[in-house]
Amino acid sequence: PTPPYLKWAESLHSLLDDQDGIHLFRTFLKQEECADMLDFWFACSGFRKLEANEGNEEKKVKLAKAIYKKYILDNNGIVSRQIKPATKSFIKDCVMKLHIDPAMFDQAQTEIQTMMEENTYPLFLKSDIYLEYT
């Protein structure tokens, strides 16, 4: 069978589908001071998943606000800097008007994912951290 670390090199999704892969990638991102990008990506997925259980509107609002505050509000943050202004104002609008939608972070998540696919993920595959692990 293919060892997991070889699968990680196939695509970002195969890497993010494996606990050890995530852990190693996060260690690398932390070194590059951009671990927030990965946390934000997972937070968006987790937020979307909340939709399944009804009756937690209050929790959804709280969580949407928390994600907005931590990753988007601060324009100097690593995540905020990678997201398009239009996307940021869309999210801000949703939060301010309490239009909480399961897909409200989708566009921002896609932008961060593209950034990882084009930038940090290829760098990770060439990094000492990954090469030493293999």
Binding site: Q19, D39, F42, A43, F47
Partner: peptide
């Protein structure tokens, strides 16, 4: 503030794959 962080952490963990 703590509970906001806890909520975020819980959300992030919920999206991660389970141990295989």
């Amino acid at each position: 503030i703590d509970s906001e962080d806890d909520l975020l952490q819980e959300c992030i963990s919920s999206a991660m794959p389970k141990k295989k």
